[in-house]
Amino acid sequence: MSLTEHRPTPAGPLRSGAGWPLRLLAAATVAPLIRWIVAADSVPGGTARRTGCDNCGTPFGSAGPPLALSPLARCGACRQRIGAPPATVELALLVSIGVLVLAARPAVETVAFAWWLLCALPLFFVDLAVHRLPDRLTSAAAFGTWGLLGLAALAGDSGTAAGGGADWLRALLAGGAVAFVFAASTVLLGRRGFGLGDAKLVLSSAAVLGWFGWGPVFLGLMVAFVAAALTSVVLLVAGRVRWSGHLPFGPFLILGSMVALALA
Rank of each mutant, 00 (worst) to 15 (best):
A92I: 00
G165Q: 11
S16V: 11
L25C: 06
G220P: 12
R105V: 14
R15P: 02
A179K: 00
R136E: 13
V202M: 11
V101I: 05
S244E: 14
V178D: 08
E109I: 05
L173F: 12
A153I: 03
D135K: 13
S139G: 06
A40R: 15
P71W: 01
G76W: 02
G83Y: 05
T138Q: 07
L221K: 00
V208H: 03
A63Q: 14
L261M: 03
F60E: 09
P251Y: 06
G19M: 04
A112Y: 03
P248E: 08
A155M: 09
V108C: 09
S232W: 00
V217G: 09
T186A: 15
R81M: 11
P85M: 03
I97W: 08
L118N: 03
V95P: 07
L93W: 02
A155P: 02
A224V: 03
T231R: 09
P32K: 09
V233G: 02
M258N: 12
F143E: 00
A141R: 04
S257P: 07
S42G: 11
G239L: 00
A18E: 15
F218H: 02
V181S: 01
E90F: 01
L196P: 11
L151M: 14
L102T: 07
F124I: 00
D127Y: 10
P10S: 12
A68M: 09
L118E: 11
K200G: 11
P85R: 00
A140P: 11
R15W: 08
L230Q: 00
V233A: 13
G17W: 13
G215C: 09
L69T: 10
A229S: 10
